[in-house]
Design a protein around this nucleic acid. Sequence first.
DNA 1: AATCTCCCCTAGATAATCGAGAGGAATCGT
DNA 2: ACGATTCCTCTCGATTATCTAGGGGAGATT
Lengths: 110, 110
Amino acid sequence: MGTNRTDLMQGTLELLILKTLSREAMHGYGIAQRIHQAVDDLLKVEDGSLYPALYRMEARGWISSEWGTSDNNRRAKFYKLTRTGRRQLAAESTNWERIARAVTRVLEAN
Amino acid sequence: MGTNRTDLMQGTLELLILKTLSREAMHGYGIAQRIHQAVDDLLKVEDGSLYPALYRMEARGWISSEWGTSDNNRRAKFYKLTRTGRRQLAAESTNWERIARAVTRVLEAN
DNA sequence: AATCTCCCCTAGATAATCGAGAGGAATCGT
DNA sequence: ACGATTCCTCTCGATTATCTAGGGGAGATT
């Protein structure tokens, strides 16, 4: 079908995760909450997308994880950015801005 | 692998095609050229993506096609927006702007 | 004790794009 | 006249990200 109003664009999720983790280490559930709150209902982040994303990002060395205990005293896996991840965030941020500008420019042309 | 610098985000291609066709009817090759020129080298539009996109958009009734002759005297299939396509363009434009704003807002938060 | 919330995980399906081709027909260079 | 280039369309398999729709455990709340 066509793009749903709330569908994430491919690549966007990882960028949002990286950015979220750049503030502080967080567990998956918290990441989802924070992103959801930040983008409100414009984008939905399903945890069926989130956890696989976290795995591949860890496999690529952008983030690292560690089991710990959440604020609510639950077992939770905390992720944090690696140095590589920080570089990736910078690269993807720049990339996003360029693409966003380019697309917006096309849309605004009459 | 990670998002390439020039990879199109899913959904973006259709939006760009719709917008391009909103100016005038064009054939596939011309659409690709125009988009490429508009976004420079930021995004590449492979024709392995373009033609399938044109097919599904026609199947959805957003565009219609007609064989004709190009400016260079070649056989070419000209596409134009349908009324439905025009509505779709409006919807996807709005959607793009919302998403772009939301993501940008997250990226700009510190 | 039962229910709710927090938190993690997985499998299959869907769908869009990429990569890498092929091919025909008109034009251009020599 | 011939070869090379440009224009233009098309297709197939692979890749990859996301969605849907589950399941499950363990602490907190009632």
